[in-house]
Design a protein around this nucleic acid. Structure first.
Lengths: 415, 415
DNA sequence: TATTAGTTGGTTGGGGCAACAAACAAAATA
DNA sequence: TATTTTGTTTGTTGCCCCAACCAACTAATA
């Protein structure tokens, strides 16, 4: 009997934690509620709610926003999460961009910035630029909202495998990075602030769950295609992390055992069929084999300058090559999604990044394959929707990840 | 504000429930512990442990089993779950067998029975036989152990999709059944007893988690090949059910978009490549195309009489056709497992049913494909093992499912 | 052998904390 | 003024924790 206990025992602080969390989550969900509403909605006793709210008011995490009369009886005092309770800084290190935002506790982005990084060379240069932008974001946050919590947390999303214990980016094939101790680097610069490092797709999924298309859904599959193909699964508000934190690498599922070589070393990964790279390759092949397309003109003849917005624009104009390529992506996406629907039985699928942009041309083919291949019991009643926050889903996810930490352990910021 | 609350609030009874559950789980895990050990292991206070144990002793769910001296100091009184605290009846309705068992609260099977159902025709006849066997199992349980709880629950495992709200078997392609309200049928016959109806693979996974090869693992992928291919995922002791309860249908993931037709209606399902049926088909093709095999003789020339034990026996004797067919299964199994490892990042994979029997010939090919195709970060440190309970995993799972209900809500049987 | 110190196991009683219930105060309408 | 709804106050209950204490054993010592 030597090991220290990993189990969380039940005690009073746990009870308080649970109920505080319950209340804050309901306030997030409904935006504003009275104490009486909260008692009704949570099932807690009126006096308990009052006590919890008093606690939150003391720390200015919640604020009273005015009376609301619902006909007869004493009017109620509406409560909401105080947007100025603190601020959150969230940053996505993409393959060729940095996206950064600063949000208040009302989850409104009060400052955002986007920068192309194609001209910057090397990991060192990019990380230094990120640090500088974080300084700027923090300065903005300090200026605009610091009632009690100040900076509540910094979140960094990266397109690769993250070791959650250490916050190290282990492997990012599309970025060409390996073993970068991101959390340690940031923690050194920003002491006493919690730093979250997470896979970009995981973050984006959380962003859509808290603030986007997946609000209120208990079983969400998120699929995000960009340079590569990433994904995540959310169950009851929590990411499925797997044993070592690398779950959700749907892009590296084998779809064709003898297929094209993938950056990961395997053959026929889903990512070789469904991604920006695959889309452009299909278009290039079609044009090179003599098919005419508006894209030849709109890229000025240089197909290396293809972008997803250009492809979507061409598709809108009825360009057959663009339509064909997008449908091909939808077809291959659909086969994989059907498999995942059978395996995981989600309630909702959210498609992100370029898929949210090209949804109108991709999703019909997806739906067709899905209903052809998935068990009807799994597929019926399930919806597929584009991400509400589009390319900003990841940054919103950084906000969400900090939010989640605060909401699930309100005690920590209550001192 | 009209809806009734679906949220569990925190209160004292929740705390008690959590701590009782903690203690019973530790007793299950270590088999016997003293109060002092429990305090150490759970992190609960000594006096709290004493109080909880007194409660469990009063209801004879736990019993004292004698002193144990660890050298110096006062000897401790060891405690264990009382095997006679009640009994559990568990039954698997397989494609061509019924397996049934009665277990005491020590999870020892005190009565078991297996019956071939190939001579019985029709759903009605089989269900009536199941009911009769359940009577017999209950009679045995009543005779051998009914201290406090009596019959703690009945569990039925079936090879198909189960609607958990109603306990209805919606679709069992390999059984040819559809929309059978199993729980309602049993509940009518056995009133005041909790009846659990669950997918066979889900149950088997739970059996291995509680009492078999997956004990203590937090992220377990279970893959079970029989007539079809089923599976399940266990996270922190709970089955992944998905939105409507149909998660884990890995057998119907598309592996070859233009492959063979599956019973489910789709093409190229994993189940068409990896299952008893697929194994036999490969062997039949090989022999029909002229390859010589020991199996021609051991089946008396009638390849319809192939069985998995015969194939394994032939493989042990070095028969090339048997070895080839098993390796082929391993190869296709490995490709799919690699995908699932990338998607779900399990800590352990347990292969069940015929795979546990043929493991020695199947697993090497699986490991080879796995390490060729899965991301090293996901695959390294992961183990693949055969199910410890082999063909009885499902029945053990029925015991586990009742156990889980009791352990997670000890309050219910404490009155 | 008898005594005493030391060690570990388990119980008892007091205190604190959080939720709950019921009575009550407050603020509106009819 | 009666009624309705909101929110607070007061007192109770249940559960865990802590610290002191009793219990049972070993080992050392006279």
């Amino acid at each position: 009997m030597s090991q220290r206990t990993p189990y969380r025992t039940g005690d009073q602080t746990l009870v308080r934690e649970i109920n505080l969390s319950l209340i804050m989550n309901r306030l997030l969900e409904h935006h504003s509620l009275s104490r009486a509403d909260l008692a009704e909605v949570t099932g807690l006793n009126k006096s308990t709610v009052s006590s919890l709210i008093q606690n939150l008011l003391d720390y200015q995490i919640v604020r009273e926003v005015g009376l609301s009369s619902s006909g007869v009886g004493r009017p109620s005092m509406l409560l909401e999460l105080n947007p100025e309770a603190g601020y959150i800084v969230s940053c996505e290190i993409g393959v060729d961009t940095i996206l950064i935002g600063c949000a208040n506790f009302g989850a409104e982005i009060i400052w955002r910035y986007r920068e192309d990084t194609r001209h910057r060379h090397g990991q060192q240069a990019i990380i230094e630029r990120v640090l500088a932008l974080l300084d700027e974001a923090i300065a903005t946050g300090e200026r605009l909202c610091r009632t009690c919590g100040g900076l509540l947390g910094i979140a960094i999303g990266v397109p690769g495998l993250v070791d959650h214990d250490t916050g190290t980016l282990l492997f990012a094939p599309n970025l060409g990075w390996q073993d970068v101790p991101l959390r340690a680097i940031l923690q050194e610069r920003f002491e006493n602030v919690t730093v979250f490092v997470e896979n970009e797709a995981n973050m984006a999924a959380l962003g859509e769950y808290f603030f986007g298309a997946a609000r209120g859904c208990d079983e969400v599959l998120f699929i995000s295609a960009g340079v590569g193909l990433g994904g995540a699964l959310i169950r009851d508000g929590n990411l499925l992390h797997g044993a070592t934190g690398f779950a959700g690498e749907f892009g590296h599922m084998t779809m064709d055992p003898d297929g094209a070589l993938c950056n990961c070393g395997n053959q026929g990964c889903w990512e070789t069929q469904v991604s920006q790279t695959a889309l452009f390759r299909t278009i290039r092949h079609a044009i090179q084999s003599g098919r005419s397309s508006l894209l030849s003109a709109s890229t000025g003849g240089d197909l290396d300058r293809l972008t997803v917005p250009l492809v979507v624009e061409a598709a809108r104009a009825g360009d057959p090559v663009a339509l064909y390529a997008l449908e091909q992506v939808g077809h291959d996406l659909g086969i994989g999604i059907a498999s995942l629907v059978n395996a995981l039985n989600p309630e909702l699928i959210v498609v992100g990044n370029i898929l949210s942009l090209a949804g109108e041309f991709v999703l019909p083919a997806v739906e067709a394959e899905l209903h052809r291949r998935a068990l009807p019991w799994n597929a019926n009643g399930m919806r597929i929707v584009p991400a509400q926050h589009g390319f900003e889903a990841c940054v919103m996810g950084g906000v969400a990840i900090v939010y989640q930490a605060v909401l699930s352990q309100p005690g920590r910021i209550l001192g």
